[in-house]
Write a protein that binds this DNA or RNA. Sequence first.
DNA 1: AACCTGACGGACA
DNA 2: CTGTCCGCCAGGT
Length: 116
Amino acid sequence: MDADLDRKSVTDFQQRVYAQTSLIPKGKVVSYGELARALDCGSAQAVGQALRRNPFAPEVPCHRVVSASGDLGGFYGERGGEAAEKKRQLLEEEGVTFASDTQVNSHSFHQFSKGL
DNA sequence: AACCTGACGGACA
DNA sequence: CTGTCCGCCAGGT
């Protein structure tokens, strides 16, 4: 019915990823694994898949999502390209500190509520 | 339905 | 620290 027309392109899972990603506070970053955990997914790759070609950019601050190792990961479907440098700059603009040109400082990681 | 890929993560050599 | 392998889940072909 009419409702079927809207969804397409974006699955229920992706909407959850974008929603959680938009919850990341400015000046902080979250790893794909942490995000996946918040979504009760258990797979960071599944989360990365959703962000890979995010149709909600820049509505969704996908640049605040980095790898668990502190690496920038990717941006706009590119890994370690100039896009990564842009991503790094965006984070620095928001107040995120970097341990290296391609690594985020560990204290800049955000943590979702675990419900304790 | 089956197979392969992917902006990951962790373990191992 | 670097390179390789396996496991994880979802999506596209």
